[in-house]
Write a protein that binds this DNA or RNA. Structure first.
Lengths: 221, 221, 221, 221
DNA sequence: CATGAATGAGCCTTCATTCAT
DNA sequence: CATGAATGAAGGCTCATTCAT
């Protein structure tokens, strides 16, 4: 939004990163060529090397930055609320919102880990574990507090993350559903599953009560 | 039909397919080289072309066969039971079991669609839609019958599929959990979500009893 | 024309030769692949080897047969007439007629000599020299007899052959000109050149007289 | 403009073109490999691609430049003289001299058109037609002026061009005949043909005297 | 910073040919 | 005769990367 006086728009480095993420999303890291990246940025291939050391470095930096941002933003969201249920809802909402806004980064960080060299792979996997640990801890707290009922919080965490991350593969900003709709529906699924319960007997009028109430009426969220 | 281990052995074509799927899983389709495939199969690279026309053809055939098998097996599983809930459970179980057993195929079919040429891509996407449609129809039936409570069965289907498919990325046959455990836990998550309810331990009336009852304490983990 | 009772149309070998000549004409010998030849003949590539030993052999045989036929036919034409001028006219006519009827053979024999192995090349070049020698001898006879006026009969022979052979690269049976037109015009060029002489002062009515008269009225030849 | 032998040397691009033309002449375009070209230029095969986009591009550029040079040089030669006969002689002389000096280019432009892709083929054919049109126009003028006697100037043009171009396939600078000899003999053939006429030794009036007189006894051969 | 030219490794693919069946 | 499968060589081309300018 704000532009520093004297700056001339995005720097070349930033452009390379932005276009690089898009190309990785479009073609995959292996299939994206630096020639293509250079062409789209308006440089000769050789010039890219003034901005990163190797193609691998570019990938690592993109994913690394993404993971750190995700972690920081998640921490901020979790610290803003108290109680396992509120925090679970906050986690779900934050994860979805972040993923729907940064599709390119998310793609690289989820589907291109395979292309990371061993050392870089370890770094990213560690950050990923950190992130998963936040959800696991949260689920553990909920189970311990009797609010959640899960036989294996690790598996549940993986399942929830897979479900939520999957949303960013089909979500389109210009589509039928708002981001809030998506958040509401996935929150409901995570908390209540599909089954109609006595709390929701005639599915289309009754509603959940209290903090856990799924916001079924899309668009009213 | 059945092939005894140690018998004369699979044909060259079958070996190529099997090794190809593994290499795609290990390196990704773009990064897998036909030289490597040939070497692992014990052929010269040129000899591969007696068994497929192009690398793209190999990928397409592998994915195509996978999708048709998945659809056929899913149909068989769904026709074996009646009632939306039983069918949902059957769908979940079948999807998970198939995906845990055919990790290589599943990987290719889910993460390498990007590498398919437009025409081939359309064919696979159509089959994929067919498969999703089975779940959506099933969810629609459940909602119509008052057994399920879902504001948007399309989104729910995508979410469920993402969750279930995700399991095959971390599941290891030699791991802590049996396939049955994985099926049970995901079935529970799909049906009931995470939330502990007063009703859950003693579980959901008569209608959900028997095989439909989620076995929440698997593995005592 | 005649078909031996019990024969079943052209043999496979003959088909291979015919299609081979066409493909050489269309793509050039190097660019023509035996796969393509096999496909057009309706065989597997390996089956071709029941009909020739190597691709080189095929080329050599095609050119060799062509050269022998050309020589034989040329000799027949030359023996039918007497006198250098009549023979020159016969040579020109025969060369053109043969070349316009066997475009594929002529192409191979003129433009694919480069692809012949040394030994085969020598054989064909020798036949070619034989053929050229007939024209040179003929021109020498004409010069000796005072009927022709040429400072160098070798060069003249090459020039005449180049001119005549060139006709087969543009001649099309369904075109504007009949074969006889083509023969008449080239005979005139060879004998008289372009220049209007006192014998043809008002070019469009006057005509050459005697045996050497160019048959300028196309279609009346 | 002029480059002294032994000077710093041609640029890489020029070397590639020169060697490329030679290799095309020696092996034919299809049979010439870029590996071979690179080796003779002293580069790695990949480095060639800094100088042209594809092998096809190389061929097209070589032929295209040749055709444009030929057209320009031909126009210059024709504009230097007046009158159909003088111009015809100028055309013949220019064509022969150019073709005897640029055998490699001429070979590519005449015998490798087949290897051009459709689009490139059309471009070259159009230039070729332009060139032919100059000769045809010239012949038409001569016929209209009563100086030439030709029933079909198109066919005559093709025949003349085939004859002249043929000379470059056997001409060798170190051979028995000088370029001038070759020009003189072909000029005579084009104008007068082979036939001895009463008028020829004392040759064709005043109008054909001087430089236009064919030097029939070149080399005393 | 940017570039043109070079590199070496490697890619998918095609080729003519062989041979057991 | 015909074939399917295999082969070894080679093809044009792309790639990430380097380096002097």
């Amino acid at each position: 939004m704000t532009r520093v006086a004297g700056s001339h728009g995005p720097t070349t480095a930033a452009t390379i990163r932005r276009v690089g993420l898009r190309l990785i999303h479009e073609h995959g890291f292996e299939a994206m060529s630096l020639r293509q990246l250079a062409a789209e940025v308006g440089l000769q291939p050789a010039s890219l090397y003034n901005h990163f050391a190797t193609k691998q470095d570019l990938l690592f930096n993109l994913i690394h930055d993404h993971m750190r941002t995700l972690l920081a933003q998640s921490d901020a969201a979790l610290h803003a609320v108290v109680g396992p249920l509120h925090r679970l809802r906050a986690f779900v909402a934050n994860h979805l919102l972040y993923h729907m806004e940064k599709k390119h980064e998310v793609f690289a960080a989820n589907f291109e880990l395979r292309s990371l060299e061993a050392k870089n792979h370890r770094v990213i996997i560690a950050l990923r574990r950190d992130y998963e640990a936040r959800l696991i801890t949260l689920l553990d707290d909920g189970v311990a507090g009797g609010m959640l009922h899960l036989p294996d919080t690790h598996i549940a965490a993986y399942a929830i993350l897979a479900m939520l991350t999957g949303a960013c593969t089909w979500y389109k900003p210009e589509g039928r559903l708002s981001k809030h709709d998506v958040v509401a529906m996935h929150t409901a699924l995570v908390l209540h599953g599909c089954l109609a319960s006595e709390h929701q007997p005639s599915a289309h009028h009754a509603q959940h009560r209290g903090q856990d109430r799924p916001q079924h009426r899309l668009g009213h969220a």
